[in-house]
């Protein structure tokens, strides 16, 4: 029995992709975390459904851990960071909104280019559009890290990038072993803790979460 139908895959992947774009558009940190939660919920749903197909307790445990980290632990740490340092808004970007959207459009166009076609052969469902969306999510998330000056937005960009990679792997039918999944989840968990601790330290030292303040370290 196949639980992941192409339609369901399309809906969830589109959610992941849309969340990545909304992460670019939002000016509020709390909204950004909220969009990340939506993106993670979509990815978690994909993972849970995939685990039903392979009836494996270990896989279910590892996916439960992933869901816990993505949907509960990471948002908890981010909301606490926002509350502690009063980081309501993060409007600081290198490109303004129209230019950011133009750059996103260029990245999406790149994914539609001919040279990407060999990569689309990976798709198992035959719907290359889904794989395109996942690849676009990866590039858009990378662009989020580049365009934003705030440390929190960059952290969300990295997590969104990770969600994009998971979405790509699922769309391409690349199976993950439970051990590997658990390892990745643990890695993200540790990374979130370290990143939030470092962000707090940066805020205490420089009075801002703006990473451009770190330039002073090079002087």
């Amino acid at each position: 029995m196949t639980f992941i139908t192409p339609q369901l895959l399309l809906v969830l992947t589109t959610t992941v992709f849309t969340s990545a774009i909304l992460l670019h558009l939002t000016k509020k940190n709390s909204s950004a975390v909220f969009y990340y939660v939506i993106q993670s919920a979509a990815i978690s749903s994909l993972l849970v459904i995939a685990s039903f197909e392979r009836i494996s307790i270990l896989l279910l445990i590892s996916i439960s851990a992933t869901v816990a980290v993505k949907l509960f632990i990471a948002p908890f740490f981010f909301f606490r960071l926002i509350k502690r340092h009063q980081l309501k808004f993060t409007v600081s970007t290198y490109l303004n909104t129209p230019l950011s959207l133009a750059a996103i459009a260029v990245l999406i166009a790149l994914v539609q280019a001919d040279f990407i076609k060999p990569l689309l052969l990976l798709t198992t469902s035959g719907q290359t559009f889904i794989l395109n969306l996942s690849l676009s999510t990866i590039l858009i998330s990378l662009f989020l890290i580049i365009n934003r000056k705030g440390a929190l937005s960059q952290m969300l960009g990295i997590l969104s990038l990770e969600n994009g990679i998971v979405s790509f792997a699922l769309s391409a039918g690349l199976e993950q072993s439970p051990g590997l999944q658990l390892g990745i989840t643990f890695n993200i968990f540790v990374w979130i803790i370290i990143a939030t601790v470092f962000s707090s330290m940066i805020f205490r030292k420089f009075g801002s979460m703006d990473v451009t303040a770190l330039n002073r370290l090079t002087e």
Binding site: F115, I116, K117, L142, I145, I146, N147, K149, V211, N215
Partner: peptide, 24 residues
Amino acid sequence: SGKINAYVLYILLTLLGLLIYFLR
């Protein structure tokens, strides 16, 4: 440059370059 954004930009450009080089 000392800017993390610039370094991630290098990663993105390298990724795109590699995709173009190996998939063309």
